[in-house]
Design a protein around this nucleic acid. Structure first.
Length: 642
DNA sequence: AAGCAATAG
DNA sequence: GGTTCTATTGCTT
């Protein structure tokens, strides 16, 4: 606790994600920040109250910095949730408009994972088997959807579009996004109050019109949601649902009230109603199968069961942070922030099958998976530090088929090759790595039966200014495609910032075009007016100054080194990271350039002392083995007794 | 750091 | 429920 004293509030929140017990304190700070009656959370239990009181006091002592006042007040938050309508089906209908008016299903293996609304009218549902779906709807047209590339590309276009409007965007899967527009609402409210809601308002009764004046933030939020949905449709051709509420939980719960292509706003006075009307505990986001089972063991099945259950008993069963969290959720209370997602933390590729039982097959499959994974990784531009191989084993007795995995660090020279030009080389060495991991999981001397193989890169490291690892600003300098950011035409302003938006100088939160990822040509012409790419981003640079020493650090892109196996580039002259467009980079103000270079240079040498020195014997053996095997194709090499 | 469970779409 | 193909977080060692 003493240590915490010196941390700014932001750090508390980071810590809160690492250690549950701090969540309470973070929460308490929140409450302090708004210093209203909010710090009297409903506490029906003395033990819990004591917890709160203790941390309350501690925090009062520990935070007295100026940063405290900057926190937005949770009570005034406006959170949007966007949910694309039958996303995969929409993507396929865009790719082939002839599919618009036919019943369409997206098939992965023998499953129809999703389908369009024409098909739904005929009784096809998500995750229905192909057999059942064809039976329900003989005219059903099926499109294979195992390759997620197109969906992923479109998914990030949606996220990027939202990001171009506001930096606080959190992805949930491929087809959902949360946006915290609290700040935008605060700004717009002063100049453009609205008198009605756009879309539906969740309510038990019919008359909802008059309530706009009682909830100006949410009313305005509904207009913003409508604008953003319209932008998503105009620019990307996708329809979506949206929910407008004061938390992620409520926004998500309310967004599906009217489907498809509709939006709904939830007013605080209807929180109890929407929570009570949930079918069961499973409907609460965050309550999965296992949690539902544990709760059911306590006799809890409905949301109100949980609401009324004594917290003490719940704590005994699940531990205090978890219990409190669940209970809060059941009451419709959720203070979790919208965490900007940024670039993905891992990339993986997998394939499932009925049966795989020979090593050659396994190797071919892994090679195939690695091929596409390495290519994706190369486009991303970051360098993975660890590699993981997962399998799913079939077991006739138990039918208990969960996944099993082994992972290992990626040797430096291999990792480097992934990002640079010769990725075939990298693939070969990764295959060798993969097979070693495979032999740790599967006794290849005995018969085996696999039903799935997955390859994964994680611990992705950009040589970019890591002010934050998430939402790295580097992605906005990338030439054609930043991490998962497919080429996107520079789109004209739609109505986003026309009617209701705040105009004027402070437009970093309101303007769409300014935040849009710019292709190099445009970037050269237009000023880069972007700050707040990440929450901790530096000062705004609002002019396209010609940097004094732009030429010095900008060396031509990498083309030379890469076939030499060693870590030779420690001594090499500085080059820009491969995902940074030199042209765009050169447009930056000189001082920012210098700062970025310094950051990159600090990260350049990646000696990884601990790895090299940890187990010299094994490490050395691995290296030797890797070298040899990339040439020799002997299967036996992979499986020696160790 | 490794491996897995839980959760999500 | 699990089925598909991902992705994230947190627990445990």
């Amino acid at each position: 606790m003493v240590l915490l004293k010196s941390f700014p509030v932001g750090v508390f929140c980071v810590l809160a994600h690492c250690f549950n017990f701090i969540t309470i304190k973070c929460q308490t700070i929140h409450n302090f920040a708004m210093e209203s009656s909010e710090d009297e959370m409903e506490v029906d239990d003395t033990e819990w109250k004591q917890h709160l009181t203790d941390s309350h006091l501690t925090c009062r002592v520990s935070v007295s910095g100026p940063s405290l006042s900057k926190r937005p007040t949770p009570a005034h938050r406006v959170i949007l949730h966007f949910d694309l309508d039958c996303f995969y089906a929409q993507v396929e209908m865009i790719r082939n408009p002839a599919l618009r008016d036919v019943p369409l299903g997206i098939q992965q293996k023998y499953i129809v994972v999703t389908c369009n609304y024409v098909a739904r009218q005929q009784g096809v549902t998500k995750l229905m088997s192909v057999t059942d779906a064809k039976q329900k709807c003989p005219q059903l047209v099926l499109v294979k959807g195992e390759d997620l590339t197109h969906y992923r590309v479109m998914s990030y276009q949606v996220t990027d579009l939202l990001l171009s409007f506001c930096p606080l965007v959190e992805r949930l899967g491929f087809d959902e996004n949360f946006v915290d527009i609290t700040e935008i609402i605060q700004k717009r409210l002063t100049c453009t109050p609205v008198s009605s809601f756009k879309g539906y308002v969740y309510s038990t009764s019919k008359a909802a019109e008059i309530k706009a004046s009682f909830h100006p933030e949410l009313a305005l939020g509904s207009h913003v949601a409508a604008e953003l949905r319209e932008a998503i449709r105009d620019r990307l051709g996708l329809t979506s649902c949206a929910g407008v509420a004061t938390s992620k939980l409520l926004a998500k719960l309310v967004s599906g009230t009217f489907k498809p292509n509709q939006q709904t706003t939830l007013l605080p006075e209807n929180v109890d109603h929407i929570m009570g009307s949930l079918g069961g505990l499973r409907k609460i986001p965050g309550v999965g199968h296992q949690t539902a089972k544990r709760l059911q063991a306590l006799g809890l099945v409905s949301v109100s069961d949980l609401q009324l259950f004594p917290l003490t008993a719940l704590i005994r069963e699940l531990g205090s942070p978890c219990a409190a969290h669940l209970k809060n959720l059941s009451l419709g209370v959720d203070d979790s922030p919208v965490n900007p997602t940024g670039a993905p933390q891992s990339l993986s590729d997998e394939d499932s099958f009925k049966k795989m039982s020979c090593v050659k097959e396994v190797m071919d499959k892994i090679q195939q998976l690695l091929g596409s994974l390495v290519e994706r990784m190369r486009k991303d531009g970051r360098q993975p530090q660890t590699f993981r191989l997962s399998v799913r084993k079939y077991s006739a007795s138990n039918k208990w088929c969960s996944r099993e995995s082994r992972q290992c660090p990626i040797p430096n020279h291999v990792g480097h090759k992934i990002t640079s030009a010769s990725s075939d080389d990298a693939s070969a060495q990764l295959l060798s790595l993969a097979m070693k991991l495979f032999s740790k999981m599967v006794d290849t001397a005995a018969p085996f039966h696999l039903t799935l193989i997955n390859v994964c890169f994680s611990n992705l490291q950009s040589r970019a200014p890591a002010a934050s690892t998430r939402g790295s600003i580097t992605s906005f300098f990338a030439p054609s495609a930043c991490p998962q950011n497919p080429s996107q035409s520079p789109v004209a302003h739609s109505n986003i910032d026309s009617s209701t938006s705040v105009n004027g100088a402070e437009d970093r939160l309101c303007s769409l075009s300014v935040m849009s990822p710019l292709p190099p040509e445009n970037a050269a012409k237009s000023p880069i007016v972007r700050d707040a790419a990440s929450p901790k981003a530096g000062p705004t640079q609002s002019t396209s100054s010609v940097p004094a020493d732009a030429s010095r650090p900008v060396t031509a892109s990498r083309s030379s080194t890469c076939s030499d196996g060693g870590d030779a580039d420690i001594t090499a002259t500085y080059r820009l990271p491969p995902n940074v467009d030199p042209q765009v980079f050169s447009q930056l103000p000189a001082n920012l350039q210098t700062e970025l270079i310094r950051e990159w240079e600090q990260r350049r040498p990646i000696p990884k002392i601990p790895i090299l020195s940890r187990k010299p014997g094994r490490e050395a053996k691995d290296k030797k083995g890797t070298r040899r095997r990339s040439q020799a194709n002997s299967l036996l090499d992979y499986f020696k007794p160790a």
